[in-house]
Computed example of a mutant assay.
Amino acid sequence: MSALDSRRLKHLVKLQRPDTIDNGTGGRKKNPATDGWTDVAMPWAEIIALRGQEAVRESIERAVQLWRVTIRHRNDVTPQLRLVWGAIVMNITAAAPNEAGDGLVLTCESGGNGR
């Protein structure tokens, strides 16, 4: 088992969580002050593009890019969060510890959300 090499973590990314407010009728809506997302952390990451594909979402065909993103281990990363790298917004589809247990490997998807 090898430890996570910090030299591979070259990209600063944002982890964001949904930010919602009461809609006045018993439901929730995205907070207009934050466009529905608020920053949780800004970890350094290794980002590797895996493959691109076409996908149909909401009756619209879009190009979808799959990514593998590795960050230092955190206990609060779930698929409810998203990752922002520059102008690329990635939905987290899975999060698992690396072999050594000191890193977290995220499987992410961009493009399916229109960005």
Rank of each mutant, 00 (worst) to 15 (best):
N23Y: 09
V69R: 02
G112D: 05
A94T: 06
G26F: 06
I47W: 03
G112R: 14
L15M: 05
H11N: 10
I60E: 14
E61W: 13
P43T: 00
S2G: 11
D35Q: 14
R72M: 02
A95I: 03
A3E: 08
K14A: 05
R74D: 00
K30V: 11
S59I: 12
I48D: 03
R57S: 13
P32A: 07
K29A: 07
G36H: 09
I47D: 11
R7G: 05
G103K: 13
Q16Y: 00
P32N: 11
L4K: 12
G103R: 01
N75T: 07
S2R: 12
L83C: 00
A87L: 11
H73G: 03
Q53H: 10
V84N: 07
V84D: 00
V69D: 05
A96I: 04
D39N: 01
C108F: 06
R68Y: 01
P79Y: 03
A63F: 15
K10H: 09
L104I: 04
M42T: 05
D76K: 04
R82L: 00
G114S: 14
V56D: 10
L4P: 04
K14H: 12
L104K: 04
R8L: 01
S2A: 08
G114W: 06
D22L: 11
Q16M: 10
G111A: 04
H73K: 14
G52R: 15
V13N: 02
I47N: 09
L81V: 00
G86I: 06
R8G: 12
K29C: 12
T20A: 11
G86K: 07
C108D: 02
G52S: 15
T20D: 12
T93P: 06
G86M: 08
A49L: 14
S110Y: 08
L9S: 05
S110K: 12
V89D: 09
P79N: 00
L106M: 04
Q53F: 13
T107K: 13
D39L: 04
P97G: 10
H11Y: 08
G112N: 14
R51F: 12
Q80S: 10
A95D: 06
L12V: 06
R62H: 11
P79A: 11
V77F: 03
A49C: 14
D76C: 07
K10D: 09
A41R: 00
L12T: 05
N113V: 11
V69G: 06
T38G: 03
T20I: 09
T78H: 01
G111I: 03
P79R: 06
R68C: 00
L106R: 03
V105D: 07
M42H: 13
N91K: 15
Q65C: 11
V40K: 03
